[in-house]
Design a protein around this nucleic acid. Structure first.
Lengths: 334, 334
DNA sequence: GATCATTTTGCAACCGGTTGCAAAAGAATC
DNA sequence: GATTCTTTTGCAACCGGTTGCAAAATGATC
């Protein structure tokens, strides 16, 4: 069995408090005592039990990392960055997969049972009720990749999806397309709704451009491909599409290529995310870059701040996106 | 503050032990008592603190889920399945990102501090010293996607990489290729070494076939592409490649296409993994399917078994792979 | 209703730590 | 060296649970 505080105290011939103090920073211990204890601890291979400690300190350093996006390659990057950043701060991600969950109650109970210090909800598709349920249970919550609201109920870090919609629209307008379409992700996702709203808003300023829209059933290759196959038959006149995200775009791309059409000559595409794969030379997708690393850094910083100040007033932190020009839209007129 | 056992006991007018017992299954409580306690608990929204409980039961239900593969899309699937399967068993994955870590010591300490019940090492590239270090620290360990050994030192669940190498070789032989190559992942990864050994072993039985080999610097798109660009210049006579894994293959594919060559007419490719993307119609990669779901199910089952029987004798569980025929190898002669 | 076996309950100690408080030790001052 | 102030240390209670044991309650039997 692993050595405990008591063992170390006995070996060093000091009180248990003394041992505890040498392992708590900021506590008052003399140099002599510290050396004695550290020697005994090293000999026994002791390191303090964080969970027992948490009982009195009320800090576990556990952070619930919650997501339901386990099929979008971008999320591998998200998990990579979150785990790294949390680890750097000495926090430990307890990963929770909510893919099939519709009711927050179980998750709330579980997170409370493990006394997590906070919860990061990393998802653009999880219903907002989840974040609120965690907050209502008294846990600090950051919703990363969540929906912007001017009166946020929980902390949100992400992008302005509406502005992204406008940005995509402008990219198409600037390139002279006259018949464009929005091919969104699932209509129920707030990210889809906001991107759509922004897209329409901008397009409303260009009455000479024909605009149509439709929604794929998921942010996935298959859904994008299937929807595009349908559209190629029903709306062959569309010149360019703003697709819900990059995976969806790649599905769309494959449908276009299979139909014997060329990109960008016959059909233009712009995606959203700029996932690693979008830059692969055989995909080479023009897309809107979502600054994932910044979003995650900021989320973790915010979480750390909230640990000290749980009642911090909820804020929305939005990061600007930018168009990454690759090969799936015709070039800008000079 | 969340209600504690003491609060519930007070409200129900019973002893703390009684409350504890109604929340411990297998404990002796009368129906009347149980109802009383459950009523009080419901009113207070009480649920037991798992961490405090773990102090006496010595079970946290935390499982360290350790990986250093946060760039290979297949691992998103791996994390999805692991989290689901662990959750189904009431276990909680504590995700540890070891991407930049070279020394197991810190990880061992951290996992001990959190009293994890066990450790799943999900990686084909992490040095075997890590798994052993965890085992030596007294934690049950399952190394998923690890290296097969006839005398395993920790539990290993995965595939027989050597047999996969043979299988790939046979696939190329059967299709009549006379000049083939092994294009492996990083030479230091045991998976690369074993696949290479199997490949050579089988090829040794076909002296009429020219065999060459090289290694990419990582299991990644860029590494595959770069290596293939080099090979296309230096070894243009090679007819078909067995590539280290699917991401690598896609990089290779892109280099081939960029060079104006056609697949499978000019160059044949076979990958390994059968990740979701391999089936995308614009990639359509012939590959060797690694049964990920089975490996993960089995890993979790094994972990659960070890929780009851920590000194279980280490075993290797290997699952058979199969060739998935798509469009990057010429068809079998009839 | 008394006797005995069985179940249910509460007491108190413990799991591995932290911490307020007062006593002990050390440092500074005269 | 005595006095005072400051720092260091140990005691004991506590964090939120579990559990062995003995006492109390219940049930079975006559």
């Amino acid at each position: 069995m692993a050595a405990t505080l008591k063992d170390v105290a006995a070996r060093a011939g000091v009180s248990r408090s003394a041992v505890s103090r040498t392992f708590t920073d900021g506590a008052s211990v003399s140099g002599k005592m510290r050396r004695k204890v550290e020697k005994a601890a090293a000999e026994l291979g002791y390191s303090p039990n964080v969970l027992a400690r948490s009982l009195t300190t009320r800090r576990t350093k556990l952070i619930g990392l919650i997501s339901n996006n386990f099929h979008n390659p971008i999320f591998l990057e998200v998990f990579d960055l979150f785990t790294r950043k949390l680890q750097e701060r000495g926090l430990r991600p307890l990963l929770v997969n909510l893919s099939d969950e519709t009711d927050p109650e179980n998750s709330v109970r579980m997170l409370r049972q493990y006394s997590v210090d906070g919860v990061v909800v990393a998802s653009s598709t999880l219903p907002p009720g989840f974040s609120k349920a965690f907050r209502d249970a008294g846990m600090p919550v950051v919703n990363s990749f969540g929906r912007y609201s001017s009166t946020p109920q929980v902390h949100v870090v992400g992008i302005d999806n509406r502005e992204c919609g406008r940005m995509a629209a402008r990219a198409l307008v600037e390139r002279g397309y006259k018949n464009v379409a929005f091919l969104g992700g699932p209509e129920s996702a707030t990210s889809t709704q906001d991107r759509f709203a922004g897209f329409q808003e901008e397009m409303a300023m260009h009455p000479d451009i024909a605009v149509s829209y439709s929604f794929a059933t998921a942010y996935s290759f298959d859904a994008g491909r299937a929807e595009m196959q349908r559209l190629l038959a029903s709306n062959p006149q569309t010149e360019a599409y703003f697709c819900g995200d990059d995976v969806l775009s790649i599905g769309v791309l494959s449908a276009v290529q299979d139909a014997g059409l060329r990109v960008p000559e016959n059909v233009g595409l712009i995606g959203l995310n700029d996932m690693e794969m979008a830059g692969w030379q055989n995909i080479n997708l023009t897309t809107i870059r979502q600054p994932i690393a910044q979003i995650i850094n900021s989320s973790v910083e915010l979480m750390v701040a909230m640990l000290d100040e749980p009642d911090r007033y909820p804020e929305a932190r939005l990061f600007p996106c930018e168009v990454v020009e690759r090969g799936t839209l015709r070039p800008l007129p000079t």
